[in-house]
Amino acid sequence: MVSIFKKIFLFYYEGFKGMTVGKKLWLIIIVKLFFMFAILKIFFFPDFLKTNFNSDAERGNYVIEQITSPINNN
């Protein structure tokens, strides 16, 4: 059992180690994911309904109010 995990680990380890252009790509992916989750998600993309309401009932009532009272939607 251990040798299977070891084999899988070595498969990935050697694969990543042997990468050439892939290293640059991984760097771009890591920078992008950091930018998205550590900056954009926290500062610019809080989930509006999740953040502002505590329950689904409140969220539902709010959306009904929004879609039936367009005059308040500004």
């Binding site: 998205m36 998600k41 993309f45 989930d47 509006f48 309904l49 969220r59 539902g60 959306v63 879609i67």
Partner: peptide, 18 residues
């Protein structure tokens, strides 16, 4: 595509709920 999914929650919450 993940950013698009963020945008549903932030900018299009009425839509996402509906």
């Amino acid at each position: 595509g993940i950013i698009l999914e963020f945008e549903f929650g932030t900018n299009w919450s009425n839509y996402s709920w509906f």
